[in-house]
Amino acid sequence: MPADRFSTATRLKALGEQAAARVYRAKRRPRRNRLTGRAALLALVMCSLVVALAYPMRQYISQRSDIADQRRKAQNAAAALNRLRDEKARWQDPAYVRQQARRHLHFVMPDETGYIVQDGSGARAAPKGAEAADRPWYDKLWNAVDDADATDPIDAAVGR
């Protein structure tokens, strides 16, 4: 008889039964809570850090947004300043001033004859309160004087 009492097949069968018993016991055993003291402390520290940093981060983001808005406003102001400088430079040119006086104020040079062409659209026959935007300034001025003369406060007080 050999020194070994059990055959290989018997040993394998016994090992399989032991493994099956261990699996069965592991399934029956109540699970241990996985949240240990260290994990709970870590979670508490992380939550407190999130709470402590939430307000400063919100302020930081808000301030960055304000800085971007101010930079955009500064760029717009610089662009407006450049436009105004260009316009000022144009107004320093006497030819431009003459051109604008002719266009907007209907000025004419000496020895020239000024004409205003009416196209018959009825712009001058507008009702009393409505003024056409394309009428010259002096025409608007004389209409205002005529309207003021038509409603003289002294005549109204006397009853004429």
Rank of each mutant, 00 (worst) to 15 (best):
F6G: 05
R31K: 12
H104S: 04
Y96D: 00
G16P: 02
D155C: 06
Y60K: 09
A101G: 08
R34K: 13
D119Q: 02
D147M: 01
A157T: 03
A40F: 01
I61D: 04
W137R: 09
A26Q: 14
A157P: 03
Y60T: 07
P30S: 13
L35K: 05
V51P: 04
Q118T: 06
A126C: 01
N33M: 10
D93R: 02
A148T: 07
A150P: 01
R124L: 15
S7T: 15
Y96C: 03
R58Q: 11
D139Y: 12
W137M: 11
M57G: 00
T113P: 00
A26R: 10
R83T: 13
A148I: 08
E17H: 14
D119N: 03
D111T: 13
N143E: 08
P30D: 12
W137Y: 07
Q100M: 09
D139R: 08
A123L: 11
A89I: 12
N33R: 05
A74M: 01
R38E: 01
D152C: 12
Y138V: 00
D155E: 10
K140M: 11
D149L: 13
L105W: 12
A52G: 11
D119W: 07
N82C: 10
Y60I: 07
A40Y: 00
R25E: 13
Y96L: 04
D93W: 05
Y115C: 06
P2N: 05
A52C: 15
A148Y: 13
R22H: 03
K88T: 08
A132G: 11
A77F: 11
D147R: 07
A19Q: 15
A3S: 14
A144Y: 01
A132M: 05
E87Y: 14
V51R: 13
A43I: 00
A20Y: 15
A101V: 06
R58N: 14
K13R: 09
G37R: 03
R98D: 07
A130I: 10
A19W: 13
R5E: 10
A133Y: 07
